[in-house]
Each structure stands twice: as C-alpha cells, then as structure tokens.
Design a protein around this nucleic acid. Structure first.
Length: 677
DNA sequence: GATCCTCGAGTTCC
DNA sequence: CTCGAGGATC
C-alpha cells in the first residue's frame, strides 16, 4: 500500500473540516459563509487529492456524499427502538381533550399544581427516518417502514447536505436521531423545471418528490434532488444520559450538529398549545416546506415515563393537524365554459371535497393543452389543492385509481352555447367560439364586463340578473340596460320593487363615468384598463380615438400591431359605432378634454410600484390612486424594473420575489413618507 | 431572434 | 393568482 505524503494528508484533513464547516453554515444554519464558487474550488481540490491518494477517501469525507453505485434493491433494517406513530387531534376540542387527559393522569401520579409544559414543534410533511451514529459517525439511515422494520437508505441519506456525516465532539458511542426528510418548496420548483425541460413528469408536491428521491436505488439521482432533514427526537442512545426534557434533547441534537427546526417553543397548558397552533397556522404559507400540523410533546422526561404508551402510540404526545390543503376527489365531468372573448375553457366538475376549509366542486383546467399535460380524464381520481390560498387547482391524477372506463376530454368543434364553429389558431393555446355577439354566452359576459366594478360599476347587476334580461329578450346590448323599466325589473325572479328601484338608481349613477372606464367597458379585445388609460392620454377624446387608423394607433406607447388592429377593427364595425351612439343617447357621459395632459411631475414620477398583501389603513385601490396621482406607475408583477414593493400583511410570493431581486420593500408608513417627500 | 416585462383574461368561493 | 401572449429591448 502506497504511503500518502504527510502534506497531502494534512491538506485533505483541512479541506474536509473546512467544507463541512461551510456546509453546516449553509445547509443547517442557513447562513452561507463563502461564495458557491469558492466552495466548489475547495471541493474539487479535495476530490483531486483523494483521486491521487485513495487512502484519503474516508467514509466521512464530504466527497462521499455524491455518488455510490446503483443497487439492486433496498435492504431491510430492524430498528433498535420502535418508531412509533402519534395520535392525531383533528379539532381544537380534541387538542384540549389531550391536555386534559395528560393533566389528569399526571395529577393521579402525584404531580403538583400548575399547567403541564409541552414542547411544541412542527409536523413536517415528509418521510420519517432514523439516523444511527456510532462514535459520532453516520453508519446507517433507515425509513420508518412499519415501525419495527424499515428500509436501508444510507447511501441516499449521505447525499443530504444538512445531515452531518460526523457529529461534533462529545458524541456518545451510540446515538440514533429521528427526524423527517423533506424537500424545500424552492428546490421542488427547480426540480420540476428540470423535469419539464426534459419532458419528464413533474412532481405533484414536495412530499412525493422527497419520497421518490430517497428511495432511489441510484444515490447519484438522490444527490441531484436536494433534500433536507430536521431532527425531532431520539432512538437508541448508549453511553450518555438523555436530557431531562424533550426541549433540552433538541438543543443537544442541535449542538451535536444535527439540523433542528427553529420553529419550536415550550408552551404551558392548553392555552399555550392553541396559541402555538394558531401562530404556526398563520405562518404556514411563508415556510419553505410543507407541514400538515403541529406536534405537542410533554416536555419533562419523567412525566413522559409516568404517562407511558397505549398500544403503539405514546400517551404523552399528539399531532394536531391542520385542515388539509390538499385532498383527493373524483372528476365527475369536464365541461366547457365560454368567456367574453369566446374563449372555451374546460372546467372539471368535482365530487365535493373539503380543502383548506372550503368545499371545492369546480377547478379550471385552463385549456386543452393543460388537460393533456396533466392527463386528466373523466372518472379519474385527482389531487386538488387550493393554490395561492384561494383558487382550487388540480395538481395531478392518481394513476392507480383510474377506472377502465375513464373518458378522455375532447374540445368540441362547435360552441356548446350557440353552435357556432370553434377555431383554434395553430400557434395558440386557446380555442374560441366564432359566434361573437350571436353567442348568448359572449353577450352575457360582455354585459357583465360592461357593468363590472372597474368598468361602469353598475352595482347589483350580477350574473343572475344578466341571465334573465338576456334570456327574456329584454336586453341585446349595453345601451338597452338603461331603458329597463321598473315594471320589467320588478317582474323578474328574486327582484322586488325595492331591489328594482336600487338597480335603476345604480344605472343612473353609472351614466356619469370617465372616458377611461368607458373605453375599458366596451370590451375591445386586448384593451384592458391599462391600455384604455394609455389611449385616453394619447388621444384625449373618444372622437379622436375613433378617427385613428392603425398607423395612428401604433404611435401609442405599448400598442403594437396586434392591439392596433384589434382597436381599428372594433371601431370599423357599424354595430359597434351604433352601440356607442345609443349609449350616449341613453345619457352615458364623461368629462371631455381631460387626460390628454396629466401631472407628469409628481413626487413619484417615473417610479414603478407593486402592491401586495393587506395594508393597515389603505385599500389597494386607494394606494394605487395615490401612486397614479403622484405620477407613479402601478404594476402587477415584480421585476428588476420595479422601484418599490409596497407590502402589507400576509404578503405572498411577490414579497419573496422582491427580496430575491433586491427590490426595495416598504410598508404603508414608509410609503406615506415618500408621498410627502 | 431571444429574453424580459407587462398586460389581459379567466377563474373560485363566500 | 396564474398563464399566455403582445410589446419593447438588446
């Protein structure tokens, strides 16, 4: 055996220590100490040294995290100490009952007065795992399996950077750490990007991705899917005394170099438990990993022993779960909806299911390609999630539960409402009904758009009412809304005289509007609020806009050939010109001559803002108006060009993006200071 | 021609 | 909120 030069051995040892120190800072403490490139350089140097002198490649070397050869199957591992499951509390009452039971049993066992102390932690939505360290060295990692026998995933777990291959000093001869392997949401996003690029199937959620990665036979694949680990308890322990409380045990594990989640506390009594539960629930969305609840554990070891076990679950611990944000349900049908522009949108009708506190029965599938991509069929069982807190989304189908008679969705070739031909340009994702205003659905949607809050804002004119006046042949275009009589309205379903009078009043109010709103209300394709505003600034009057040809329209900022053609085409249609005349005859009016000149030199001139979250005293609309009045711009998405992100409570992904791009984030108070100068 | 930035449009539930 | 696509920019 060749001897290794002493200098090389020393250099290798130094590199190993250095890399592990940076790894710990990066993966566990979440506080990187050196740039990635420098880390790479250290790592490569160590790899080279070990290649030259194989004797240096020790089992705990950081280079051993990546690699390993494919294995044929996963070996079985018998756990030295059973891996138990926890009892679940699904409601607050059940959580209260847990505390009550514990307090009562402890009182009988002779415990003194006062509320019981609990260690409170997160319940991670990942995979439970047991890490065995002997003399401080990681020797084995195993899944929970059935609790007594699990699978050996040592090679895979070695690739997880936050799992120390060697514990810090003073590790006992045998220590088993229990915890959860999970994938961070941002790492899942990155993984799915790669999957998409390669045309592979995307993972529905971090848990599935983590499970897949951990059970890979080829650890090199695991290494590419960045996993994370949080320790939350002990298995077998030899040669050291267990700390007197669970919270102290966690502190100890952290001191040994194991990652322990910082979102934990010690709470007293049921009030403390529920306060923790609620605090975590509020924070949940902002965490970078999925959790499905919290865990309460009686903190004092002695009290745990006194309480003991019932069958396979400890009496001293309990998981308090959140209402599920994801659920499975069945696709009863896939129907097609017709939008204002004739867009045909497939919508899945679902068997009602509770997700995140509401009952979901519908979920959009956006377009034909999306249906194909997710391969959703009628009769399928699907996973449903409430994305961004509100809108339900079909995440994936459960392929094992597809019935043999599941039907594929086909986009109809004729409009389901008016039977006109359906067209889908080769380069577009959306199929459209060609019926135009002949189509009842498009007529209704056009009226709803006309009456909507950001257009003419006709209060009380909702879906049901539009349905009735269109079906009843009372109204064919927007102008006819203004000639509806009290008698007609009062005769409709669910309309008394009072509601009818209110609606007439609302219509009257809507007659006085602004040119921007009016143009937006017309519902010209590609002309939304923003473009309507640009058009008004440029042309100043409706007459000037109507007279403009395509070339003149192209001179407007942010108007290109497609938008210009759409506008010119709209005003060239005689029935559109007629409709505008009728609206003016019905008394719709706006102050003329405004808008062409605007206060370009406000305090916020040239500044772009993005709003997110709920502000303490202003609504978003009010904040937008203030910004516009001061010469600033409001945009919907954060980019490098954004000057400020005005963030309130419960700010979402935009805040994260702002932080990632280094865009200034301000609150309402700072915003007011900006306004005042 | 590619890439980034916006805007428009569609959607769910209470 | 998310996706698709139009417009601007390099």
């Amino acid at each position: 055996m060749s001897t290794v030069p002493r200098a090389a051995a020393e250099r290798a040892a130094w590199l190993r220590a250095e890399i592990e120190r940076h790894n710990h800072a990066y993966y566990v403490l979440d506080a990187p100490t050196i740039p990635d490139a420098e880390w790479d350089a250290l790592f490569r140097e160590l790899q080279d040294l070990e290649a030259q002198h194989p004797a240096l490649a020790t089992a705990d070397s950081p280079t051993q995290r990546v690699g390993g050869v494919p294995r044929s199957d996963l070996a079985e591992v018998r756990h030295a100490v059973l891996m138990l499951s926890l009892n679940n509390a699904l409601t607050e009452d059940e959580a209260l009952a847990f505390d009550h039971r514990v307090a009562e049993m402890l009182a009988k066992a002779g415990r003194g007065e006062g509320p019981v102390e609990y260690a409170c932690e997160l319940k991670f939505d990942g995979l439970a795992i047991n890490l065995r360290y002997e003399d401080g060295l990681l020797v084995q990692a195993a899944t929970r399996g059935d609790g007594s026998v699990g699978e050996d995933v040592t090679a895979n777990v070695r690739t997880i950077h936050s799992v120390p291959l060697r514990l810090h000093d003073a590790a006992p001869p045998v220590l088993e750490a229990r915890g959860e392997v999970l994938m961070f949401k941002r790492d899942l996003a990155r993984l799915n990007e790669r999957q998409r690029a390669r045309g592979d199937k995307e993972f529905a959620n971090p848990r599935n991705a983590a499970a897949g990665a951990l059970r890979q036979l080829d650890a090199r694949i695991t290494a590419q899917r960045r996993l994370h680990f949080f320790a939350y308890g002990l298995g077998e322990l030899r040669g050291a005394a267990e700390p007197a409380t669970h919270s102290a045990t966690l502190d100890w594990l952290a001191a040994l170099g194991l990652p322990v989640c910082a979102e934990r506390t010690v709470a007293r009594g049921s009030d403390g438990l529920l306060a923790f539960y609620r605090a975590v629930q509020r924070k949940r969305e902002r965490l970078d990993y999925d959790i499905d609840g919290v865990v309460y554990k009686v903190d004092a070891r002695a009290e745990q022993v006194a309480l003991g076990f019932v069958s396979r679950a400890p009496r001293w611990a309990c998981a308090h779960k959140f209402p599920p944000q994801e659920a499975t349900t069945q696709v009863l049908d896939i129907e097609v909806q017709v939008g204002r522009t004739g867009a045909l949108t497939p919508v899945a009708r679902l068997a009602p299911v509770a997700v995140g506190g509401v009952t979901v029965t519908n979920a959009t599938l956006h377009n034909e390609d999306e249906v194909r991509r997710k391969d959703v069929r009628i009769g399928d069982t699907v996973i449903v999630r409430r994305a961004g807190d509100v809108i339900p989304e079909i995440v994936a189908v459960v392929p094992e539960r597809r019935p043999p008679d599941a039907r594929e969705f086909a986009m109809p070739s004729r409009c389901p409402v008016c039977d006109s031909a359906v067209e889908r340009p080769a380069d577009e994702a959306i199929a459209r009904c060609t019926g135009g205003l002949v189509c009842g659905a498009q007529r209704k949607q056009a009226l709803l758009h006309f009456a909507s809050r950001r257009a003419l804002d006709i209060e009380g004119l909702g879906e049901k009412l539009v349905e009735q006046v269109v079906e009843g042949d009372w109204v064919h275009g927007p102008a006819e809304l203004f000639s509806l009589s009290l008698e007609t309205l009062a005769g409709l379903e669910r309309m008394g005289e009072k509601s009818a009078a209110n609606l007439l009043h609302a219509l009257d109010k809507a007659r006085s509007t602004t040119l921007e709103r009016f143009i937006y209300a017309l519902g010209i394709r590609h002309v939304g609020e923003s473009t309507a505003r640009d058009l008004v600034h440029h042309f100043g009057s409706l007459a000037a806009l109507q007279a403009a040809d395509e070339a003149a329209l192209l001179a407007v900022p942010d108007v290109g050939p497609v938008v210009a053609a759409s506008i010119a085409h709209f005003f060239a249609e005689p029935h559109n010109r007629e409709a505008i005349e009728q609206l003016r005859a019905a008394g719709v009016q706006w102050p003329e001559g405004e808008g062409a000149a605007r206060p370009a030199a406000g305090r916020l001139a040239g500044k772009t803002f993005v709003l997110t979250g709920t502000l303490p005293t202003l609504t978003r609309e009010q904040a937008s108006e203030l910004i516009l009045a001061a010469g600033g711009k409001v945009s919907g998405s954060v980019s490098k060009k954004t000057d400020y992100v005005l963030a309130g409570d419960e700010a979402g992904s935009k805040l994260e993006k702002a932080q990632a791009l280094g865009v200034a984030v301000i609150d309402e108070a700072q915003f007011r200071k900006l306004l005042e100068g």
